[in-house]
């Protein structure tokens, strides 16, 4: 069960990262002069989404261990 659960969490994390990238890319394409600010905000958002997955792996998976 554990690999499947991890895969599910990775799926959610991937969707979240993709959405952030999508939004940031669109914003950058529309306003190339705001690329710096958008990149900063995008990186922060990416870090937070990634953290969810990392917490899942370290805390959740550890708790599942026999």
């Amino acid at each position: 069960m554990l690999p499947f659960a991890l895969g599910l969490s990775a799926l959610g994390c991937g969707i979240g990262l993709g959405l952030i990238g999508y939004g940031a890319m669109q914003g950058m394409a529309r306003q190339p002069e705001a690329i710096g600010k958008l990149q900063t905000a995008m990186l922060i958002a990416l870090a937070f989404v990634e953290l969810v997955f990392l917490l899942t792996v370290f805390v959740g998976a550890g708790a599942f261990k026999p």
């Binding site: 990634e50 953290l51 917490l55 370290f58």
Partner: peptide, 14 residues
């Protein structure tokens, strides 16, 4: 604290 440390650890160690 947890997020900063776990993020770095997870990325590098992972």
């Amino acid at each position: 604290n947890v997020s900063l440390s776990l993020r770095l650890y997870g990325n590098i160690h992972g």
